[in-house]
Design a protein around this nucleic acid. Structure first.
Lengths: 196, 196
DNA sequence: GACAGGCTTCCTATTAGAAGGTAGACAGAA
DNA sequence: TTCTGTCTACCTTCTAATAGGAAGCCTGTC
C-alpha cells in the first residue's frame, strides 16, 4: 500500500477486467495470478477469499463512479448535457474497448447465484446510480432543461435501463457503435422543445 | 424420446433454470443431476459435453421464441398491441418468477468468455429478435399504428435494449414491478397521436 | 412363442485437472 | 525484531469427461 500501483491494486484491476468479460464465476485466482505475475497464494495474502476480493472491487467501483459523476457535475451544469456526458463516457469506453461493460450490470445479471456480500454491494451500486439519475431528472424538469413524459424516478430508471440494454446489444452484436445509436434518440427525446 | 417429458427435456429444463440464475459458469452437471434425479454420467449420455448441452438449449430457446412470437402475431394484428403483448409476456414471467430473466440476455453479458459454439447461438437469438421487432416497427410505421421518432431498426434496437435493461433492474432491485413501470412510458411514446 | 442381437438409458467407478484455500518458510524493509 | 509480501508445497472439493457394464426394450428370425 502506498506506491501508485501496488500489487493489491493490480489484483483488483485484473479482477475487474476478468469480471467484465465473464462475471463472478468466469475467473479464478489462477487467472489473476497469471496476469499480475505472482502466485495464487500471494493473492490470498491481499484478499483472503474470493468474496473479499470481489466485495472490495465492487465497493471501490462504486466509489470511483461517485468521484467520476461529481467531476461531471463540476464541469457540466445543464442536466441534458450531463446525461449526454454520461452516455458519451460509456460510448467511448465501449468503442475503445477499454471498459466494454459495466461490472455491476454484469454481476446484477448473475445476482441470484452471487455470494450475499457481493450481491449487497451490487444492489448498492444500482441504488446509487438510480439516485443520481433521479436527481438530474428532477432538476432538469424543474429548470426546463429536460422534457420528461413520466415521473423523474421512472425517467431515471428508464434511462439506466437503456444504458444497460444498449451495452448488452453492443456486446451481443460485437458492434460498439450500436450503443450510441440506441442512446441518441433517448437523449433527443429528453431535450426541451426549444432545442428541437 | 417420445414421451411428453423425456429425461433429455428435463435436463434441458433444469439447465435453463440454472443458467437463468447464474449463467454459463454458474451451474455444473452435478447441479442438474440433483434436480433431475439421475447421475452426472447419465447427463453425458444425452449431451456428451457441456457445450453440446448449452448449444442445444439456446438453439431450442430461439425456436421456442419463434413459435411464441408467431402465435402472438396470429392473435394480435395491431403492431402497438403486439409490442405491448411482448412486454406484457415478460412482465408476467418476471412477476410470477417463472422465467425471471432471458437466458440469452444473461449469456450475452458473458459473451467474451463463452465457448464459441454457444456464443454463435446467442448472437443468432439477438439477430432473430431484432429482425422481428424491426418488422413490427416498420409495419406499424407504415400503417400509422406506431409513431416512430427514428428509423424502424433503431427503434427496434432501443425497444429491445429497454426490455433487457428493465429486466436487469427488476433483478437488481428485487422488485419485479419495476419492469412494467419502465416499459409503460416506452410503449406510450410509441402510440400514435390519436390514441394519446 | 422363443430367443438372439442391437439399441437406449442409466449406472458405478475413475480420471485429470482446476478450484479456492492453508501452512510454513524465507527475504527484505521498518 | 517484527512486519510485509512473496514463495513452495500441499489439501480438499469440485468439474467435466470417460470406461465399461447392467437392465430393459424393440425387432426380426426361426
Amino acid at each position: 500500500m502506498g506506491n501508485p500501483s501496488s500489487t493489491s491494486d493490480e489484483i483488483l484491476a485484473s479482477a475487474r477486467a476478468l469480471i467484465m468479460s465473464g462475471g463472478y464465476n468466469g475467473f479464478s485466482y489462477a487467472d489473476i495470478a497469471e496476469v499480475v505475475g505472482i502466485r495464487k497464494a500471494s493473492i490470498h495474502h491481499h484478499f483472503p477469499s474470493k468474496v473479499d476480493l470481489v466485495r472490495t472491487l465492487v465497493s471501490r467501483y462504486r466509489e470511483d463512479a461517485e468521484v467520476g459523476l461529481e467531476a461531471f457535475e463540476r464541469n457540466v451544469q445543464n442536466p441534458l448535457e450531463l446525461l449526454k456526458a454520461y452516455a458519451g463516457y460509456w460510448a467511448r469506453c465501449i468503442e475503445d474497448a477499454s471498459t466494454p461493460f459495466c461490472v455491476c450490470a454484469l454481476l446484477a445479471s448473475e445476482l441470484p447465484s452471487l455470494p450475499p456480500e457481493v450481491a449487497k454491494e451490487v444492489r448498492a451500486f444500482f441504488r446509487f446510480l438510480s439516485k443520481w439519475l433521479s436527481a438530474v431528472m428532477k432538476r432538469g424538469s424543474k429548470e426546463g432543461a429536460l422534457r420528461l413524459s413520466s415521473e423523474p424516478q421512472i425517467e431515471a430508471e428508464a434511462f439506466m435501463a437503456s444504458i444497460h440494454g444498449a451495452m448488452l446489444s453492443a456486446r451481443a452484436y460485437g458492434k460498439p457503435k450500436i450503443f450510441a445509436a440506441i442512446m441518441a434518440p433517448a437523449l433527443t427525446r429528453l431535450a426541451p422543445p426549444v432545442l428541437q
